[in-house]
Design a protein around this nucleic acid. Sequence first.
DNA 1: ACCCCCAGTGCAAACGTTTTCACTACTATA
DNA 2: TATAGTAGTGAAAACGTTTGCACTGGGGGT
Lengths: 338, 338
Amino acid sequence: MSAVTIKEVAQLAGVSPSTVSRVISNNPKISSTTRKRVREAMIQLDYHPNIMAKSLVSKSTQTIGLVLPYSSDNLFINPFFSEVLRGMLAYANNKNYDLLLSSARNQSEELEAINRMVLGRRVDGVVLMSPNRDDRIVEKLMEYNFPFVLLGRSLEYPEVLSVNNDNIKASFDLTNFLLSQGHHKIGIVTGKPELVVSIDRLQGFKNALQKAGCVLNPDWIISAEMLEQNGYHTISMVMNAEDSPTAILVIDDVIAISLIRELVEAGFQIPRDISIVGFNNIYMSEMSNPPITTVDVGIYQLGYQTVQHLIRKLSGKEQNLPTQVIVPHRLIIRESTK
Amino acid sequence: MSAVTIKEVAQLAGVSPSTVSRVISNNPKISSTTRKRVREAMIQLDYHPNIMAKSLVSKSTQTIGLVLPYSSDNLFINPFFSEVLRGMLAYANNKNYDLLLSSARNQSEELEAINRMVLGRRVDGVVLMSPNRDDRIVEKLMEYNFPFVLLGRSLEYPEVLSVNNDNIKASFDLTNFLLSQGHHKIGIVTGKPELVVSIDRLQGFKNALQKAGCVLNPDWIISAEMLEQNGYHTISMVMNAEDSPTAILVIDDVIAISLIRELVEAGFQIPRDISIVGFNNIYMSEMSNPPITTVDVGIYQLGYQTVQHLIRKLSGKEQNLPTQVIVPHRLIIRESTK
DNA sequence: ACCCCCAGTGCAAACGTTTTCACTACTATA
DNA sequence: TATAGTAGTGAAAACGTTTGCACTGGGGGT
């Protein structure tokens, strides 16, 4: 394990450590001859700077922290997550930043992780994923005045930098599509009520129905949790009632896929008996049988732009950065609807 | 942004910085009264140690690096990845380690990432995912004598610490299952030939056929790439020949799902017309239509044990650690086979 | 009464950088 | 020829820890 330091490079090149440091940081005051000599010494010794030492004095770690929300087990199952991570890594690594991951099983672990990262000066900035409705972490970071960005949006603090879809509009558009296909009895499978994204998508759905003058039958609001726990019973309850919806909007493609499976197993045909639409457009949405009509939220872009704006904020150069970045969505019409 | 250091704590508690440091590291030589006084000061000031400074002198970062193979875009699409990550994070965070991620678009970027991490002393150890057949990174880390663990195995250096399935056996078992169901005309969709896991699974498949005295028709060996590029043509080529397989073993559940879709679209029924089996048992394998017969490789465990053994190695306490850890697999029989 | 030992604590060096300041040796100007 | 400016470099302090070593004082053994 080589442990060559700046001093050894300096010695070999016959200069002082300061000069080597300046060569590394491309300080223009160094003459091209010394610059060349130092460069050669660096290569010859296979020198790589010790980031810890560098960070200690420069107070910048070239690392951004990603804190996964607690109870994120579902998140991992969802391919949404890896795709968003891919986008984040793409931008970050391109700018020579690395990503530091922490997960947590509960709120106190989450705070602990944040403290390790932020107070331990281990990261320059933090990405918060799909924050909950009341988010103590957001408050804490604001209090510390520590740079962070939300993937999603905060209800309580709309002024913080966030990258998000216009989920209300997306849901509105998707519902309108169903309406335009002649459906006016539409149900919905909702996500966790503490997530802002669930709230927004439900809102857009309601907005569209209201605008179209449709009534929403309360029996047709199914929570994803209920679906998961009761499975078939939930479905039969809805579908075998005297009055049943002709289409269901599902908060997330993964859930839509499993709903479709339940329905098919129960003997329904899709979209003949009922139309199903989802959200996100993950890879599997196209592979599903039938392929799902959904709204593409630009998952990769969501991740990419999140760290893009964070890094911009960190550089501190540009003024008047936007505070609310919206990644556009678009409808993807496939065979799960008619 | 609080920036309280050990000195301020020391001052408040009326002791020297060294004493505070010893309290932090639970040095038993500190009297319980001072210990208590220091603890209180720490809490009062909301002190958190600066990890950079700590790492600089102690030469330990409490971080392990995860280097994603280049051309890993497919990897991200595959839910396998997030599940393995979940396992890694679970163990790591539990031991107060964090995960540092780097991806790369090509081999030189990959080396660069490794250098940043390893030579920059940013991590204590490294996890290498599904290494390629000839792996320069493995060589490099061995040369540096830097602690690392393979998720998968190395053909050239079987002596390095690795956590893996017995993929040959898994494939053997899966093929045997098909044989036991009466299939003796079995095709295979193979993965990237440079991946060890592809090689192993192909080997196990061949072993089983040979043991059963079956011949493998070369036309029935389809590469995943070909499948992806030609789609329907590949299928029709195989299925509409005068001699066609009655079952296909697919190297990966994600590919199996998309193959099933192609087949269904082409008018085949599964498993009536042809049986399909996959590998890994991702979440979607059960949601597929029909649900896929596969082999559960314990994805979460793979990730969990990988960092478990790495951290054990780092602690350096235990001697004679195993060098080859095998995570058991098990057959999951579902409705894609008959 | 003497010495020794040990528990408990502080001092100061070290980790590998960056950066301010000062210095040298030119070059250009008057 | 003297003066000032400048390009290029080095010395040293600083970042916030850990840790080897030295010191103090009180208790036990002779």
